[in-house]
């Protein structure tokens, strides 16, 4: 199947991209890595009038640190994320997760900004952004806006991005002593979308798990923080109590791979495995 006809324009700067987006509005789609957009175009599931190629914007590139944050430019490709020492140091859950994203020939093109903006409920990176308490940086003709990942993912393929906004970067707090992370997903085949997955970030303080954030994906309509389960775990309530609480935290869906009950079961299995990996002592207690 071949894509429907569309126009294409390559933006050379962020202001130009914003201008083009303002001009074409809903008729336009932004093209960064294109690894989700191109399949949709080729299958004629999406038929925009124009593609605005933002993949050459210098403002959206680079991985750097400030005094408090790790800043990852939206155009950072998955392979760059995978290999970046700064990411491994400050957000190792991303380094771990990215190896599960599709395959090398896709990781070479796909971008972190594209993945977050696409907000696929089955994608790894939105859940990582939640677990990492990331901040999403967006630009519009009105200027820059920064919101917490918690407020960014609003629904099935839906985000807080306004029609004239472009996601420019992701900011994550620098790693602190005691930070621990865990990641797990259950995919039928390597590189497939998972039946369910979990990205977890926390801190060990005085031998106890604190500041725990459990970002689930492939369960429900969007990446979801399991706040009750996390609270139980940080309060010392134990893995089984936390696993039970996932019924309140998550809204599992039915699909071809698993029904809601199976999905919730698997989310619990992952919780046990990921948390035990982060805190071997909890496994012993369980």
């Amino acid at each position: 199947m071949k894509a429907s006809a569309f126009d294409y324009v390559r933006a050379k700067s962020l202001p130009e991209a914003l201008d083009l987006l303002a001009r074409h509005g809903e008729a336009a789609k932004l093209l960064a890595g294109g690894q989700s957009l191109l399949p949709a175009l080729n299958l004629r599931l999406s038929a925009p009038e124009i593609l605005i190629d933002i993949s050459h914007l210098p403002e959206l590139r680079g991985i750097s640190t400030t005094a408090t944050s790790l800043r990852i430019g939206a155009l950072t490709r998955h392979v760059e994320l995978q290999n970046a020492a700064l990411v491994a140091e400050h957000a190792p859950v991303l380094t771990q997760a990215i190896g599960h994203v599709a395959h090398a020939a896709i990781r070479s093109r796909g971008t972190i900004g594209g993945s977050l903006a696409n907000a696929d409920p089955a994608a790894e990176l939105p859940a990582c952004a939640l677990a990492l308490h990331a901040r999403i940086v967006m630009q519009s003709p009105r200027g820059e806006r920064v919101i917490a990942a918690d407020d960014f993912f609003t629904g099935l393929f839906a985000t807080a991005l306004l029609p004239d906004e472009i996601l420019t970067a992701v900011e994550i707090n620098l790693a602190q002593p005691g930070d621990v992370h865990g990641f797990g997903e259950l995919a039928r085949r390597s590189g497939d979308y998972a039946i369910v997955g979990l990205a977890a970030q926390g801190r060990v303080q005085n031998g106890k798990l604190a500041a725990l954030r459990l970002g689930y994906f492939s369960i429900g309509t969007k990446a979801t923080l399991a706040t009750k389960a996390a609270a139980i775990l940080t309060a010392g309530g134990g893995i089984e109590a936390a696993a039970a609480a996932l019924a309140d935290d998550l809204e599992p869906h039915d699909d071809l791979q698993a029904d809601a009950a199976t999905r919730l079961h698997l989310a619990r299995v992952l919780l046990r495995r990921v948390i035990s990996g982060m805190m071997p002592s909890l496994k012993a207690a369980a």
Binding site: G34, Q35, P39, N42, D53, A105, I106, S108
Partner: peptide, 18 residues
């Protein structure tokens, strides 16, 4: 699968204009 700018890519997921 082909090589674009030194990295392997899915040739069907890249536009010629890109």
């Amino acid at each position: 699968t082909i090589r674009l700018d030194g990295a392997i890519v899915r040739g069907c997921l890249v536009l010629a204009v890109q």
